[in-house]
Design a protein around this nucleic acid. Structure first.
Lengths: 355, 355
DNA sequence: TTGAAAGCGCTAACAG
DNA sequence: CTGTTAGCGCTTTCAA
């Protein structure tokens, strides 16, 4: 027997039946202490390290795997701290449930295959889509075909899948109201990508109508909820500091008379880029321009400044996803969750100049 | 048949045998076009979405899963960009091989269980340990017991496992030589954690002798290789900007006469924190103090400055790990890899003051 | 408390 | 080119 020992080998070495040996490992049934010890000893002697998960999985029909489809914010070097933190939290949450996270790349470009092979063929009990999911999403289609239940995070509210999200609109509305109370009248906004085609430019009304990623849409709508029509909407290709800086240069280079006095960015990374860009232009934050963000990240490079931002409960999001997964595995239909956010006022917003 | 259809159902619906139906999906054998179509049609009619991976896995003895044990640099909110980028690259590299990445939390604290249950029980064909692995590592022990081959990244060179790393020592030595050529005599260094017990303080000789994480040790040794004895060694609890800032305050607060004129940090995040901290102290970089890092990250918040740093080939590292995995799965014993690094001179190093 | 037997869904010889 | 047969390693009735 040069091969790796199986439960049958252990059983025969211990002089018991396979079913008894199984019990010795699983503990799922009555077994005499002496017998168990005998089995375990035999296992140790043979170098048997426990039941082969493959056999167990086939038998139970469960893989113990949660497939996590990471949106392209993660794909690009996992540079989105929110997704990364959520992923981390998710790993922690489902670990105790005996589940593991399988990373699945989301769709990247228009040229690549729409669905990763893992979505089609990997063993998983549930799938989580991080920041994604439109109605016609081929990934969602493939999962449905396979009968794998899905949890969508920060996506569209779709029929047949569980959604976990936050109050994007209300959060931006709160930040916007804060700025209005400070006397700001000319407020610009810097957004996350509108869709898979990514641009770095001021968007006109036409272009704004083309937003397909509902996250960006919801956050944009927050301004309207607060009664503000932004003087400019700057669309970025990704939530990165440098794109915020580029936005600042585009939005804040003009003369003071019609320059925005405040900028609401849809992410903290973008917002911190706006702050840095404003400073490069010789503007003081918040004396000349106020900047607010969204996420609630630690941004040590702005120190001693603290960004005014909408803090989202990333840990709670992970917990909510974990709960949804657990419910789905139990055969229940968990309710969608919309978690509250909170405005944290830092040092990057202040009274409008001249107000 | 309210249950999910199996290959047997499809076969009988198509009027063929199971093995023929299997061939229709796998393409691993001769099959008549018409037959295949018939099978596929039957499958479509039944809503069969392809062979159940669990059955296939048990049969083939392969799970198609690469377990990636993420060191605690990743665990803490995945905040180490290098590990995150490597993980991303790894996903890309092994995807085409039909493999998926299972995330496995590494050991966290001294109180927690030393080995994650997934290491003991999850199905995987190979394991990768990201930045970890000491001789007595319980994770490595569990893997060996299970007969799962392992690739260790940035760890110790252990017998029986494949190691992929970079020329840490040579990289730091190159950066140090660069500083010496600029006339620097008093060079301090800011290190990664020494071991699981994390401190934020200047380390004395005694403490330096206690370094258990060989990565930090190798990088520290780079200074000696360049013939430099650092005037101070500052040990940080994690590779984060704020700890670099703290180090700067500790190292650079004194009078100019015996203040270090250059700081070599073992990571870019630390280095950028040192730059920010130096500026907070009213020091100009590089006029008053030069700063060099390690990694080669994009640091947009230092713009327009560019950090002088040792660039490590993260993508190549991912490729090397992928190759090692492939070899291990083929039953070969791949060679250890030590990848070269390259000094990139930016704007944060300059002539020593008065030199 | 233990054992015998069935079968999870699939693939790979092998025979036809 | 297609069908028959035999497991992969395990858990779980059900009987003893």
């Amino acid at each position: 027997m040069s091969h790796r020992p199986t439960l049958a080998d252990v059983a025969s070495a211990a002089g018991v039946s396979v079913s008894t040996a199984s019990l010795a490992f699983s503990g799922a049934g009555p077994i005499a202490d002496a017998t168990r010890r005998r089995v375990l000893d035999a296992a140790a002697g043979l170098g048997y390290s426990g039941p082969n998960p493959l056999g167990r999985q086939l038998r139970s029909g469960r893989s113990g795997i949660v497939g996590v489809v990471v949106g392209d914010a993660l794909r690009r070097s996992f540079r989105d701290p929110v997704s990364v933190q959520l992923l981390d939290g998710l790993v922690d949450t489902i670990g105790p449930l005996g589940l593991g996270v399988l990373l699945i790349p989301g769709p990247t470009g228009p040229d690549e295959p729409a669905v990763d092979p893992l979505v089609e063929a990997a063993a998983m009990d549930v799938a989580v889509m991080l920041w994604g999911g439109t109605l016609d999403d081929p990934t969602l289609g493939a999962l449905r075909r396979r009968g794998i239940p899905a949890v969508v995070v920060e996506g569209q509210d779709l029929p047949g899948v569980v959604t976990v999200g936050i109050d994007d609109r209300g959060g931006i509305a709160a930040a916007t109201r804060h700025l209005r109370e400070l006397g700001h009248e000319r407020i610009a906004t810097v957004t996350l990508p509108f869709g898979p085609e990514r641009r770095s430019a001021v968007a006109d009304a036409d272009r704004i109508g083309q937003i397909t990623w509902t996250l960006s849409r919801r956050r944009l709508d927050g301004l309207a909820e607060a009664g503000v029509t932004p003087v400019a909407v700057y669309e970025t290709p990704a939530s990165l500091v440098e794109h915020g800086t580029a936005a600042a240069h585009a939005l804040l280079s003009g003369p003071a008379e019609n320059r925005p006095t405040a900028v609401v960015a849809q992410s903290d990374l973008l917002a911190s880029g706006v702050v840095l860009g404003a400073r490069e232009l010789g503007l003081r934050v918040p004396e000349d321009v106020s900047v607010a963000g969204f996420d609630g990240l630690d941004l040590p490079w702005l120190a001693p400044d603290v960004l005014t931002t909408v803090v989202q409960p990333i840990a709670d999001k992970g917990t909510a996803v974990g709960r949804a997964i657990q419910a789905l595995l139990a055969g229940d239909t968990p309710a969608d969750a919309v978690l509250p956010v909170e405005l944290r006022i830092g040092t990057t917003t202040g009274r409008a100049p001249g107000a």
